[in-house]
């Protein structure tokens, strides 16, 4: 058999994958482990088992306020990024505008530009125009970096869709809005859905923009965790982090249901 892989290499591949798995997932396992510890010191493997640090988190005003801000922000960003990104993707897909290639590249450019460069510009512009940063600044900033993900997932789904469905609707006499609503939107839906969950995940986990655009009373969950890590981490930070990991796992399951995890990985 020509396709056969030498047995020694097969074993080596299994060992390699196992080691990589430990390397990639190990830190997350450690965080969850620390959060279950009974001791007040950060240690892995954990000393004793308890849920007391989760109790601590749920009664901590700082964490609850940060969590509430992160949740509101992520929901706002999901909404705006999906609307803006989805509409742009439909227009880019139709290629009816001059400079379509350039437009596509422009819309994906926030993915390529290092976030720190954008974050510092955003902070300087906002301060010059409006003074202290606010939730609106975070909302706009996160939308700029989240919308390209929606553009990308929606374009990927549209590329596989039937280009003549809209023509058919047009010959049958459907107006523009009806065509958009009844034909194009359903075609985009898996892409929009996956993009929306990506946008939520991105905003909920984002640290760089949120660190630059922070002020007292405007700290998201990742910023709150970062601050504690710099100074005095205790296992309650691990508990919050574990909750964030749980949110991520939930989002991956949902995205897998919508478009399939493999489709996500290869676009």
């Amino acid at each position: 058999m020509v396709r056969a892989v030498p047995p020694a290499l097969r074993v080596a591949a299994v060992v390699f994958v196992a080691l990589t798995a430990v390397f990639l997932v190990g830190p997350l396992v450690v965080v969850v482990g620390v959060s279950l510890s009974e001791s007040q010191f950060i240690a892995f493997p954990p000393a004793g088992l308890s849920l007391r640090w989760y109790d601590r988190v749920l009664s901590s005003e700082a964490f609850l306020a940060a969590g509430w801000l992160s949740l509101r922000l992520a929901l706002l960003v999901t909404l705006s990024a999906t609307l803006v990104g989805g509409a742009a993707a439909i227009a880019i897909h139709r290629r009816r505008l001059p400079g379509g290639e350039v437009l596509g590249a422009l819309f994906l450019s926030p993915l390529v530009l290092p976030t720190i460069i954008y974050a510092i510009g955003m902070l300087m512009l906002w301060s010059a125009l409006f003074g202290p940063v606010s939730l609106a600044a975070l909302w706009i900033g996160h939308t700029v970096i989240a919308a390209p993900y929606v553009v990308r997932t929606t374009l990927a789904v549209l590329a596989d869709s039937d280009p003549f469905a809209e023509e058919a609707a047009r010959t049958m006499g459907a107006g523009r809005l009806r065509r958009l609503w009844l034909v194009v939107l359903p075609q985009c839906l898996p892409g929009l859905g996956a993009g929306a969950f990506f946008a939520f995940n991105l905003s909920f986990d984002e640290a760089v923009l949120s660190l630059f655009l922070r002020r007292p009373g405007l700290t998201t969950l990742p910023v709150q965790i970062y601050g504690q890590l710099e100074f005095s981490p205790d296992p309650s930070v691990a508990a919050v982090s574990s909750l964030m990991i749980a949110v991520t796992v939930g989002l991956i399951v949902v995205i897998d249901r919508i478009v399939g995890v493999q489709k996500v990985a290869s676009t």
Binding site: P27, L28, V30, I225, S241, T248, I252, D256, V261
Partner: peptide
């Protein structure tokens, strides 16, 4: 395997770094 790669990718950088802080510290594994 894809989940294995995507799970850390989609987890906050702050959380992952925290894991390494525990592992690499003086008393760490």
């Amino acid at each position: 395997l894809i989940v294995l790669v995507i799970l850390p990718l989609m987890t906050s950088v702050v959380v992952r770094t925290f894991g390494w802080m525990v592992l690499l510290s003086r008393s760490g594994l």
